[in-house]
Amino acid sequence: MGAVIECKNVTYSYPLAKEPAIKDLSLEIERGKFYGVVGENGSGKTTFCALLRGFAPSFYKGELKGEVLVEGKKTTDYGGELSAKIGYVFQNPFTQISGVKDTVFEEVAYGLENFGIPAEEIERRVVEVMQMTDIEALAMKSPFDLSGGQMQRVALASVIVLEPDILIIDEPTSQLDPEGTESVFAIIKTLKEKQKTIILVEHKIDLIAEYADEVLVFKDGQVIAAGDKRKILSDMSLLEKGASLPQVAVLGSMLKERGLPLSEIPVTEKQAIEVIARALEERKKQ
């Protein structure tokens, strides 16, 4: 398991901007791991994603210092083929359609058509992905007649069908209702089971706590904390720096302060129930 993406002393400024959006960032993304990216609005999370995918600077222009390497090659040296390696899903479900297809089936197939995959293989792969993302019932519907949640699943399917090893998913649920959010996370969970490298920006910290392996905390264009989610999300000092932590972690740390002998500070609900139950059990014994 080596690094699949590497950032070396990356500083990036958007055109006309006075301050760089990312300041002297160095980190490695390891293959097969799930990274949760958190931080306040404007802290550089989306810019970070755009840098990894090479959209910055190729599309956003601006100035890049340092280098971003994907499998050892600079993003600026890739042409269109980076789309085969890295899948990218955006916030707004409604702008993520090709704009030229009449049915969901064709929409999902669009990328494979561009790659010149034989028609029979496209059919097979698209059907498989539609089943995985639970949109097969929508196959013959127009992409414009879908709800936000359905649209976001189509957007995910259109990317997954290309079978990229790395997926960057930028706040996929910020514009969705709870039901839509749940369906999107069900898909992300399946992707995790398939050992994909996933970089997910998400405000809903509880979801990060549940699914991610590693957490990156952004603030003012820098990563102020990075590492295993249990370590990061239970680090109460981050609260003072403006990061939000799972409620169960905050609760756990308070209980511990008040003298409940917790073996660790929990970050997910399930873990909290276990840890607290065990602590209460122990207290009874004493």
């Binding site: 959209f55 599309f59 789309s83 085969a84 955006f90 702008t95 359609i97 090709s98 669009y110 957007a155």
Partner: peptide, 8 residues
């Protein structure tokens, strides 16, 4: 960007 991501 969507189109780029789909190999346009």
């Amino acid at each position: 960007l969507t189109l780029e991501a789909r190999g346009f």
